[in-house]
Nucleic acid binder design. Structure first.
Length: 427
DNA sequence: ATACATACC
DNA sequence: AACTGGTATGTAT
């Protein structure tokens, strides 16, 4: 499991000794509750795969032919929506948090750095020196330390990141004030109009943005991808990372050529589990995905099929999310959760839940939002997650209502298993 | 509507 | 010994 999470290609990790990383990670974790839980989840995925395979094997030749025809029809229908008229850029800062820290302490540039709240919590970023050892974001600190004993831990300091983020956003706004901020270190910018107006190209703008961002932030580098949809621009932003750019042509031919040998895992939305499932059906690249469209139609849900076919053809929403009904809405949820030393102490858990649910209510009030549903998340010492939710009479952001609902949901579970030991609660 | 899994940064 | 936190969305019932 860890193998596929921690060793799959990430910028700066091309020459990593994957075997060593897999071994170190395994040795450090085998037998732990977390590892047991991962194994349990893997077995669930295996079951899912087995069911899909059985379904496929149970189908007659005629049924397969029908799926083949219908998959072709769907592909033709999707082709009719291909336009290629828009120009999207995605800007992604390189090793953002770590790079920000290096800005304030240049000595960090030459040593392996991991940004994490503490030496045993999870890394938010690793600098490129650390990545050579296989250390990367999302890796627990104690494993990172095993891979790279000289790793220097730096605590995250969001003030630095917000400042740099705002500086970079000042640059994006010059090209389109309606850019979409993904996170602090990522943005989607539509430059169709800008290219028209200034008679320029995505390539030229990408160069400009990279140099202006470096200037505005006092030295941070970023990578830029370009294409006719957000999805394609996004993959391209990773193609020449760090401090690089890649602009994909906008014709069908350019796109299919690019996708043919591109591993499916590179695409936004395909993670470790879906990659594993697809691999089981001999689908490794986006080209394979297109070739096996009949299999996908037969075995995946309609939504999943549309998603995968869109990836295979390189067709995705080219418009701004505000132009679609779904994208026009604002925020959909507010939550707070906290991990602590596993305990069954009801008084402690009650107090924690009260504290977190209160914060959620106050955050809703601050944002002027009301919710219709309260959900709690409990994580047992065994790492399995329990989620319970309740629908309220009407939208609210009242502290008492939210706290009481959350407590009731948690107590319901607690009364079932008297020995429930939790390591996280959230609302 | 509810429970839970997956994915992203 | 030790594996986050926040948000969104998909799947299954």
């Amino acid at each position: 499991s860890y193998g596929s999470v921690f060793t799959h290609a990430k910028a700066g990790m091309e020459n990593v000794d994957r075997e060593r990383v897999a071994r170190v990670v395994y040795d450090a974790t085998v037998g732990t509750p977390h590892h047991e839980n991962e194994t349990r989840k893997e077995r669930a995925t295996s079951k899912r795969i087995a069911a899909m395979k059985a379904k496929g094997q149970g189908m007659t030749k005629t049924e397969w032919e029908t799926f083949g025809r219908r998959a072709d029809e769907r592909a033709r229908a999707m082709e009719r929506t291909r336009s290629g008229a828009r120009k999207w850029l995605v800007v992604d800062m390189d090793g953002f948090y770590a790079a920000c820290e290096e800005l304030y302490d240049p000595a960090l540039k030459s040593v392996p750095v991991g940004v994490a709240a503490g030496p045993s919590s999870v890394l938010t970023t690793a600098n490129y020196v650390a990545r050579k050892y296989g250390v990367r974001a999302a890796m627990p600190g104690f494993i990172a330390k095993k891979l790279c004993p000289d790793l220097v831990f730096v605590k995250p300091d969001f003030k630095k990141y917000v400042k740099a983020s705002n500086e970079s956003r000042g640059v994006f706004a010059q090209y389109n004030p309606d850019y979409i901020a993904g996170s602090l270190d990522e943005a989607y910018i539509e430059v169709t109009e800008y290219c028209e107006k200034h008679d320029t190209t995505m390539e030229a703008i990408a160069e400009e943005i990279r140099s202006k961002v470096k200037e505005a932030t006092g030295g941070l580098t970023c990578s830029v991808g370009g294409g006719c949809s957000r999805r394609l621009a996004k993959v391209c932003s990773d193609f020449n990372k760090p401090n690089g750019q890649y602009i994909l042509g906008t014709t069908r031919d350019d796109i299919l050529k690019f996708l043919r040998d591109l591993p499916v895992r590179k695409m936004y939305g395909i993670g470790k589990t879906l990659e594993r499932i697809l691999n089981e059906f001999d689908i490794k690249t986006c080209g394979d995905l297109l070739a096996k469209r009949a299999t996908m139609l037969a075995l995946f849900t309609p939504k999943a099929f549309d998603f995968l076919l869109g990836i295979a053809l390189g067709i995705g929403t080219e418009c701004h999310p505000r132009e679609t009904p779904e994208g026009s809405g604002g925020r959909k949820g507010v939550s707070k959760s906290e991990t602590f030393k596993a305990t069954a102490d009801k008084a402690y858990l009650d107090a924690k839940m009260t504290e977190l649910a209160t914060e959620v209510a106050l955050e809703c009030q601050r944002l002027n939002l009301k919710g219709r549903m309260v959900a709690v998340k409990l994580k047992r010492s065994t790492f399995d997650v329990i989620q319970r939710q309740t629908t309220l009479a009407g939208p609210t952001n009242d502290v008492k209502t939210i706290v009481n609902s959350a407590l009731r949901l948690m107590r319901n579970e607690n009364s079932i298993g008297a020995n429930m030991t939790l390591r996280l609660v959230g609302a």
